[in-house]
Amino acid sequence: MTQPAAGVAEPPPSVISAAGVTKSWGTNVVFSDLTADVPRGVTGLLGSNGSGKTTLLGMLLGLHEPNSGALTVLGEDPAQAGGDLRQRIGYSPEHHNLPPDIAAHDLVRHVAVIHGLPKREATTRSSDALWLVGLGEERARPVGTMSTGQRQRVKLALAIAHDPALILLDEPTDGLDPVQRDGMLELIRRIGTEFGIDILLSSHLLEEVERIADNVVILNDGRVTASGRIDELRTGQGGMIAVIDNGVEGAIASMERRGLVIRAERDRLRIGGDLPPDKLADAVRDSIAENDATLRRLMPVQQTLEDLFLDEVYGE
């Protein structure tokens, strides 16, 4: 039986879409209301331990059904599409275990064949994938003789060899030293940008998600507490920084009357509040104009992903 080629049809704008998804294991509620849209590109999936990252990956693969709500992956319901959808997904699990006595090339080729590639194509592509991840010279070696870093690369080759439209990576840098981690992150970024394969990267390391991801989804307490483009989230949530030369007291009083929260930091003011970013800037401008104060600089606060994560997860 043959099926139409995967990769021919252009994936929809939202690679993953969840609306009101709930999931429980017995009495343990994992997701009470999971709502998010994951656009194309590289997306980081963040959450503290036990937040349901791995369960979500299982649901995206169609291995667990949601109790309620709508979930689509590449435009299809994973619980219904099942195997047809998984054929277009590459998955790299968190654990480091792989069959120790099988050559890397044999393992990657076998997994490519079960994802629907003809044997000859699978042979070529598994070899290419191993070259791509830097294991070309090592491809005939049994996986059990490889280091943790090399096994992580084998897992990445397993995920890309069959040319998926989407790759799910579960902690792909776990167990790597800093040099290996840099190489792996660079490779993942390249796969997501140059090769046009969308990536969902589950990690608890904020710095690496910030480094290679375009988008982020933050899970906490059974819900998505933040999602979207990282640069927009960092800019939009942190308020503004203003540097004012004279008329500072009057400007602060005007801002506080407008409901803004002011914190003086050396020669600058950190201004926050419940207003959206454009309204916040308008309120600051009007307060300064009212008091004939001199504004030298006004800029949005650039939060780090860590600030954002701590805000969303721990409310700090």
Partner: peptide, 25 residues
Amino acid sequence: TQTEAEIFDRGYRRYDGERSGVGTA
């Protein structure tokens, strides 16, 4: 060794051919 490993750029090809089904898997 791992530290000597080097990534060779052999490019990446998309696969547009037919895929076999579950029976072949």
